[in-house]
Design a protein around this nucleic acid. Structure first.
Lengths: 213, 213
DNA sequence: AGCGTGTCACGTACGGTGTACGTGCGTCAA
DNA sequence: TTGACGCACGTACACCGTACGTGACACGCT
């Protein structure tokens, strides 16, 4: 009976199952019992490899973050390199949309998020920024990217692609909110890609101006 | 006995108690039972005024957001008005630090967040931007602000004022992460006010450049 | 071969959570 | 007076994270 060798249940297998479950059923559906069931093991077996659920979610964030793929071209203009890095960061959020909230919601003091930081700082300093300003600029970019991702997943917790707000903007009192009322069609839909690119270009240009001074 | 008239337990009292509890004990400590206990009522009484915990947290977000105080000077330069609005938005996050995560974590399709939007759009269009671009710029500012707030509360879940990362950056391999290693003192501490202001000014200037074209 | 010793899967159990449901008490309209 | 309705409340259930104990198995040593 039970021919399955049932490979040894490692930490990485647990993390993978957790990511899978989050992506399939949403972050709220994540429970130790559910993960254990998905792996076909008992609940408490998980605790031989993961100290707690919080640590597991940290590991999930770390795993997702470490999958960022940088195709960094050292010969390219620094503006182009910054653009690519920002887009790469955002891309993983599209590959794991339901996990994005998990990643963003917990501060990660691991070394997983360090490689992107290293690359970004290197690019900025190579462009001619001093260390302190490079850090400031990096923080600004991260804030913008994270904020954008949060809007994208916030608007779509069930990940219906767009249109979300619909009803809400239609019945706004035009006297109280004339601008909102007039612009409701524009506010109503949101091409995330275009929106993100717009802000990104603006940030890059602003950064370039800073460099010229 | 029981002299207390025990005023009638309205929805707003429940929300206020929830905010109070979040601010005192943290967002994790929020439970229906704890809120009920803080109000001196039974747990199920809450459900006569609030359909669910999720709805309660939405109401919390709405309440916090509606407390933004705008001192909008119509005679001021539009850049100054944008600055004031951004700072006002951020200020409530400092008044309710523990609630910030709650506000940011849930998309609000209520009219509470509409007044700031109306003001901002009015300012931008008054400056000369077209409707579509005003929306784009607004979204960019919101992304930056939200991202910044998330970093500020993320670094301080227990709200210890600063210094947080300490150990983590000290023992980074200088060969693997030369930039991070060299800049670790800069990365280690973060003057949130200054950092936010830096990015904000950069965004405003970039926006002004966009307008000039 | 016998025997600690360690690793690890697992069951049980406890205190917590959100909330469905029923019950009883107040205050009004008829 | 009586019915209806609003609302505070207790009980109960399913589910959660996880502390603890137990037993199967693999190993190095004598």
């Amino acid at each position: 009976m039970d021919a399955m060798p049932a490979e040894p249940l490692s930490r990485s297998r647990i993390v993978a199952a957790a990511i899978d479950l989050i992506e399939r059923e949403g972050a709220d559906a994540v429970s130790m019992r559910a993960i254990a069931a998905a792996l076909g093991v008992g609940v408490m077996s998980l605790y031989n490899h993961v100290p707690s659920k919080a640590a597991l979610l940290d590991a999930v964030a770390e795993a997702v973050l470490s999958q960022i793929e940088f195709t960094d071209d050292p010969d390219a203009e620094w503006t182009e390199r910054v653009r690519m890095q920002a887009l790469a960061f955002r891309q993983i959020a599209h590959h794991y949309p339901r996990c994005t909230m998990v990643v963003v919601s917990r501060q990660l003091r691991s070394t997983a998020g360090l490689l992107p930081v290293e690359r970004a700082l290197d690019t900025l300093r190579g462009a001619g920024f001093g260390g302190e300003e490079a850090v400031r600029i990096l923080r600004m970019f991260i804030a913008y990217i994270v904020g954008s991702l949060l809007r994208e997943v916030g608007v779509t917790p069930t990940f219906a692609p767009a249109h979300g707000s619909d009803v809400n903007l239609g019945d706004v009192d035009p006297l109280l909110f004339p601008q909102v009322s007039e612009l409701s069609p524009v506010l109503g839909d949101c091409d995330h890609d275009a929106e993100f690119a717009y802000g990104l270009e603006l940030l890059i240009q602003a950064t370039a101006v800073r460099l010229a001074r």
